[in-house]
Structures are given as structure tokens and as C-alpha cells.
Design a protein around this nucleic acid. Structure first.
Lengths: 109, 109
DNA sequence: CTTATTAATCGTAATATTGCGATATACTTA
DNA sequence: TAAGTATATCGCAATATTACGATTAATAAG
């Protein structure tokens, strides 16, 4: 198959999975880290920063953009990317709530 | 291709991606949530709980087990699964450190 | 207008993931 | 020993992902 049966799961479970998948590739992790490090827009140096071909980076940027985690502004022939603060915070809440379950299972077999 | 070029990225970036990928499928999210909800071992009711076939669940459990996030104890014909507390905490630290970057980019274009 | 620069899109090949039927394994119980 | 129960593994088909060369689109510079 290769086809996820999303209808078997709750909206939240699917939401968590979609967000997590965004970070499930090191190139997208590196893009996000660079955007945080620069702490402002990145205009075009992502291909040099990360060692992948330009179409590949463009594709990863598109996925992050489709999720709303980053946004791009056209500036001449360049495009400036930055973190979308609101959506990043919303994502962070969803993921951390999932991760922050308390572990009390002292009665584990 | 379809082959991630891990050598282009740092160990931390690859580590984050590997952890995130574990949560990149709603079935694995559901498994983890159920383990937290029950708050003890789950012995065999995961197939009933989640609506996928037994080999499919077994495969997802294997991936979580390989990452060390869960552990299984054989109990007769059943296998009891629970969260591996230490490894879960380690994973949580890695992911939340990544997510917890401050966003100060007021000078965004 | 022509050329250069930058990024997106198209098309495609290689690899990975998902899901499950069939089967194997291991233990329990009669 | 034989039959039942629970889980893992095998093998395969369908789909998804990754990567990049070639091309396109859009603006900038001369």
C-alpha cells in the first residue's frame, strides 16, 4: 500500500503525525535551525548552507511553507524566508502536549 | 533516489529527524498515547484499540522498540509493552530543545 | 533588448514506507 | 501430544519520499 489510513485516527493524532513528519528529514531540521540562528529572513543562502541541490531545497521549503511553519517574501529575484511565529507556536503546543505526558508506570511488568 | 543524504547533516540534525519520523505516523502516535493512557503495560489489546491488522501493528511496535522508546516483556503467549522512561525523557529533551528556540525576528522582511 | 541571477516547477529514477495475507514461532492448555 | 492463542516475520503490491537535471518564470543589470 504505502497509503496511511488516516480515517482510522483522530484529527489530533493525524495533526501530530503531519507536524512530526515535517521534522522527519534532516534537511528540514537544518533549514529551521538556520532560520532561528540567523534570527531574521534568509534570502537565498540556504542552498549554500545546506549541501543539497537547489530544486531539492526548494521542495523542502515548499513543504514547510505548506504547513505554515515558514513564510516567504519576494524581494527582487530572491525570496526571503522566516519562521511564521504564530504557526510555529501553535505547532509547538501540539507537539509538546503530546510529549509531556507524565510517566507513572511503576507497575510495569 | 528516495535516499536521505544523512552525511550532509550533523548527528543532532539526523537524531532529531529520526525521532520525529517515529511520530510521523498516526498509528505510532496512537500506540504511544494508549500506553500513556493505560499508564502500565499493554498486553495485546493494541490491535483491537487501533484498527489495523496485527502484522501492521507489530511492525509499528518494532520501529518504536528499535528506537528504544518502548520496551516489551514476554508474558506467556502475550507481550507487554510500556514506555521506556529513560529513553523517552532523552528523546523529549532533544526534540523540545529543538522546538524551544526563541523567535526574536522582529526585523523580518 | 539581452543577459545574468534566483527560485519554482516538471519529469523521472531510486529508495522508503505502509499495509496485510500467509506463515512461522512460542507458549498454554486440554 | 494436539489444538489453541498471541505475536513476529516474510513477501509482496501500492503508494510516498527524496534527489536532481532540465526547464521555466520573473526580476535585475547592463
Amino acid at each position: 500500500m504505502g497509503l496511511v489510513k488516516t480515517e482510522k485516527f483522530s484529527d489530533l493524532q493525524n495533526q501530530i503525525a503531519v507536524y512530526a513528519k515535517a521534522f522527519g528529514h534532516p534537511a528540514r531540521v537544518a533549514i529551521i535551525q538556520h532560520l532561528f540562528k540567523i534570527d531574521t529572513c534568509v534570502c537565498g543562502d540556504l542552498v549554500a548552507e545546506i549541501g543539497l541541490a537547489q530544486p531539492t531545497i526548494s521542495q523542502h521549503l515548499k513543504e514547510l511553507k505548506n504547513l505554515g511553519l515558514i513564510q516567504g517574501t519576494i524581494d527582487g529575484t530572491k525570496v526571503c524566508y522566516c519562521i511564521n511565529k504564530d504557526n510555529w507556536t501553535a505547532m509547538k503546543t501540539v507537539i509538546t502536549t503530546f510529549l509531556d505526558n507524565d510517566i507513572n508506570n511503576t507497575t510495569c511488568c
